[in-house]
Amino acid sequence: MAPREDDAEDETPLAFDAVPLPRRAGAPRLNPARGPLLRRIEIVDQHGERRDIDIPAERPLTVFVDKRELVTLMTLGAAPELLVLGYLLNQDLVRRADEVESIDVDWSVEAAAVKTHRGIANLAEKTAHRVVTTGCGQGTVFGDAMAQIGAVRLPAAQSARIAQGTLARILEQMKSRNSVHRHAGSVHGCALFRGTEMLVFAEDVGRHNAIDTIAGWMAVHGVDGGDKVFYTTGRLTSEMVMKSAHMGVPIVVSRNGVTAMGHELATKLGMTLFGRAANRHFLCYCGFERFDAEPLAQALTAD
């Protein structure tokens, strides 16, 4: 995958990386404003030795939509303009990227200014029911995830499938990736695959921010999710499952596990969830009809 232009001479592991694709017609004007990803601090280790290490540079980004304050996101800042767009889409505050005219990020005031073409109808009503979600980089969603099921349309199992060999190659790529997490820890990573090809990779302090960043990239480039696989290092909560569904991605893989509500939601939507996925080990929690299993022979043990 080709790095962003501003990463060309930066030795820091990439927290955002994507294949180069043309922008779709009507995509909003974005002001790329990546912040420094790491901060160097001094620590004392278990041997009593002092040394310098890098830690992720978490920062607040307050989002204003048509000059109205909406939410403050805690983020690494690898691709903040895509994060904001993806957040608006996954919250169902906008339906399409072309409803947004521009997104300008200014780190000097820690703010993102979103300008829409015609405003967001019933914004106050849509944001009245706020739910604080689980996990690191704590997120906020508006509305009830279960109430949104009827609006989701995913491809049939016959046209969106994954083979076990494909899953294994995806896991191999994620294991070997030079990431901020491997360098400094404390972040989550997400990626979108077409077969075994990684299209986009994003890291952030919260898994929900990373998936929103990918949603923003998909919207800008007109990438459909129906034949894709979404990977995350974070657990599959109802929020993550619903965001994947909003992106039109029916197959989700996690290095972590799944919550009961995440499983219930995915089952109702006809999605396939894999968890505890690392190396060649995994659990398929639901959506077995999309999975072409190639069972590995179990090692025989002597009595």
Rank of each mutant, 00 (worst) to 15 (best):
E9N: 14
L300T: 05
M146K: 12
R68S: 11
N90R: 08
L76K: 00
R130F: 00
I162F: 04
D17Y: 10
H47R: 14
V229N: 02
V220S: 01
F142S: 00
L82F: 05
C136L: 10
D292Y: 08
D54P: 15
R235Y: 10
R68E: 09
R68H: 10
V180R: 00
A266C: 07
N209A: 05
P3G: 13
P28N: 04
M174D: 07
V132E: 10
M218Y: 06
P155L: 00
R29V: 08
G226K: 02
A25K: 14
G143K: 00
E294S: 15
P22D: 10
V249C: 08
E5N: 12
R95W: 04
L37Q: 07
P28E: 02
L171G: 01
A215I: 02
D10L: 09
M247F: 06
M1E: 03
F201A: 06
R118F: 11
P155N: 02
P56Y: 00
W107L: 12
E294N: 13
L171K: 05
Q148R: 15
V44R: 13
Q173V: 01
Q148Y: 10
G48C: 09
L283Q: 07
A2F: 12
G35R: 13
H117C: 02
G222L: 08
D45G: 14
R161D: 04
H129E: 14
R153M: 08
L273D: 03
S108F: 06
R40M: 13
H208E: 10
D212L: 03
G234M: 03
I53Y: 06
K115I: 05
N279C: 05
H183I: 01
A121T: 05
R235L: 10
A145M: 10
H183V: 03
R24V: 11
M174P: 13
E81I: 01
D10K: 13
R153L: 12
T62K: 12
E58P: 15
R161Y: 14
A184F: 09
L154Y: 09
P3Y: 11
A27S: 14
R194M: 11
I162C: 11
S102E: 08
G137N: 01
R161P: 08
H47I: 03
A33T: 04
N90M: 02
E110S: 15
I55G: 11
G248H: 05
G206P: 14
E110T: 04
I214E: 02
F288Q: 04
